[in-house]
Computed example of a mutant assay.
Amino acid sequence: MEQLTAEFGGAGLAGTGVGPVLEKFDAVSRIVVLRGGGLGDLIFAIPAIAALRTAYPEASITLLGTPVHKALIAATKSPVDEVQVLPFSDGVRPGAENEDELNRFFSDMRARRFDLAVQIHGGGRYSNPFLLRLGARHTVGTRTPDAASLERTVPYVYYQHEPLRALEVAGFAGAFPVDLEARLAPADGVRPLARAADDDGRPLVVMHPGATDPRRRWPAERFAELAVACAADGFQVVVVGDVSERAIADRIVELAASGPVRSLAGQLDMAGLVALLVSAAVVVGNDSGPRHLAQALGVPTVGIFWTGNVINAGALGRSLHRIRASWVTTCPTCGVDVTQVGWTAPRCAHDDSLVAGIEARDVHEDVRSLAATELARPEA
């Protein structure tokens, strides 16, 4: 206990959450949370933000995020009050930095006089100095040994479940967990999609074949095999993705060559994606944003994961969510150990799928099982 108290700058222990829950800060009316990255990155942060909302119910919560985060918060009900889009900044939001834009941003943020700034964006090498420039009275976040220190810091170890890591940070800000995983609902006005005239009441399976890291992508041929099997079962199948994923979605439709399989890749805004996902019986996807969003919306999912990503991002429960994990630990081309990540070892140059060995028949069985469970639920 003495070592714990010393490391945390003398903060007393208030209780236990994912990790220690320290004493709350006094007089907190304005909270800012730093979380850049993609759609899934924000979804991982939602439980921590919900915990902060409960611990400081009178405080406003500002998210410093990305344009896709702003779109998600607009399309859902969440614990976030507002989103301020981050300027381009090395290690925080990739892109060409503009010093004048950065200075204006920090001037505007300091003028808000935040009481508490919370960093849940990586190990802090770049994000901690960024957070400190906001000028908040109190700072909390993660930290690798080479990162700037904050008032209270949680040691950053790469292999940790991301929502639980963020909850541990929230605990250091005095916030007990409310949920272990994200819970979102469609915003008012965002409704499940109306049935198409030609769908004959067939339940919907949504597939997302994309992922930021190509090594996390299940091959198009596997998705097509699954789509054919689902169509034969009487499902309608819709493939989704952003504009950059349109070609792979079209390839899946082409390979499936089945009437009930179609692509909406590149055609949906965030509200449209939310509306589609909540209409689905099951969503199948790689470790990527749309699958994580479907889970947060309470839709059953089958996730195709590389084993290391299961640790960081896999669903905790199995009643509504199934995981098919690949246990590959070396690059199929060069044999390098792919479990060594980040600063521990450079990534090899190869983009071979690490999940290609997962069989379509196994994923199909999960889809059938989850769809039967979902259809048996009242008001499904």
Rank of each mutant, 00 (worst) to 15 (best):
residue 264 L to V: 11
residue 193 L to M: 08
residue 214 P to I: 01
residue 259 G to E: 15
residue 233 D to K: 14
residue 205 V to A: 10
residue 243 V to H: 13
residue 236 Q to E: 15
residue 182 A to V: 13
residue 199 D to Y: 05
residue 206 V to K: 08
residue 253 V to L: 12
residue 217 R to M: 04
residue 211 A to I: 00
residue 165 R to V: 01
residue 267 Q to T: 12
residue 259 G to H: 15
residue 248 I to K: 07
residue 176 F to W: 14
residue 252 I to E: 05
residue 252 I to D: 04
residue 225 E to V: 03
residue 203 P to D: 07
residue 230 C to H: 11
residue 168 E to A: 15
residue 225 E to N: 12
residue 191 R to Y: 09
residue 206 V to Y: 11
residue 186 P to R: 10
residue 194 A to F: 02
residue 237 V to S: 15
residue 172 F to V: 01
residue 199 D to W: 03
residue 254 E to Y: 07
residue 187 A to V: 00
residue 206 V to I: 09
residue 210 G to T: 05
residue 196 A to I: 00
residue 198 D to W: 08
residue 241 G to Q: 06
residue 181 E to A: 10
residue 219 P to Y: 02
residue 258 S to D: 13
residue 265 A to I: 04
residue 252 I to S: 05
residue 178 V to P: 03
residue 205 V to N: 05
residue 229 A to I: 00
residue 166 A to W: 00
residue 204 L to W: 02
residue 257 A to N: 15
residue 173 A to H: 11
residue 172 F to S: 04
residue 249 A to N: 07
residue 189 G to H: 14
residue 182 A to H: 06
residue 230 C to L: 15
residue 262 R to D: 04
residue 182 A to D: 06
residue 264 L to P: 01
residue 221 E to D: 11
residue 269 D to S: 08
residue 227 A to W: 05
residue 181 E to N: 10
residue 233 D to I: 04
residue 206 V to A: 06
residue 166 A to M: 03
residue 208 H to N: 12
residue 208 H to Q: 11
residue 232 A to P: 00
residue 215 R to S: 01
residue 235 F to N: 00
residue 163 P to H: 09
residue 212 T to K: 15
residue 176 F to S: 06
residue 218 W to S: 00
residue 168 E to T: 14
residue 242 D to M: 07
residue 164 L to F: 06
residue 188 D to C: 03
residue 258 S to C: 13
residue 192 P to T: 03
residue 253 V to H: 13
residue 223 F to W: 12
residue 270 M to C: 13
residue 265 A to T: 03
residue 255 L to F: 11
residue 223 F to N: 07
residue 162 E to W: 00
residue 265 A to V: 00
residue 197 A to K: 11
residue 167 L to D: 03
residue 241 G to N: 08
residue 262 R to C: 09
residue 171 G to V: 07
residue 250 D to Y: 04
residue 200 D to E: 14
residue 227 A to N: 10
residue 231 A to Q: 09
residue 165 R to M: 15
residue 203 P to M: 06
residue 235 F to L: 04
residue 180 L to I: 05
residue 225 E to Q: 15
residue 267 Q to I: 00
residue 171 G to I: 08
residue 228 V to D: 14
residue 196 A to P: 04
residue 260 P to S: 13
residue 253 V to K: 12
residue 189 G to Y: 13
residue 219 P to V: 04
residue 224 A to T: 05
residue 211 A to Q: 03
residue 189 G to S: 12
residue 224 A to K: 09
residue 168 E to N: 10
residue 256 A to R: 10
residue 187 A to I: 00
residue 233 D to L: 09
residue 203 P to G: 05
residue 170 A to V: 09
residue 217 R to N: 05
residue 176 F to P: 00
residue 182 A to C: 08
residue 221 E to L: 02
residue 187 A to R: 14
residue 268 L to C: 06
residue 233 D to H: 11
residue 270 M to L: 13
residue 206 V to R: 10
residue 206 V to P: 03
residue 242 D to K: 08
residue 228 V to P: 10
residue 244 S to N: 08
residue 239 V to E: 05
residue 262 R to I: 00
residue 190 V to Q: 08
residue 209 P to T: 06
residue 196 A to D: 05
residue 225 E to H: 12
residue 249 A to F: 11
residue 191 R to Q: 13
residue 172 F to I: 01
residue 174 G to R: 10
residue 169 V to Q: 11
residue 250 D to H: 10
residue 187 A to M: 05
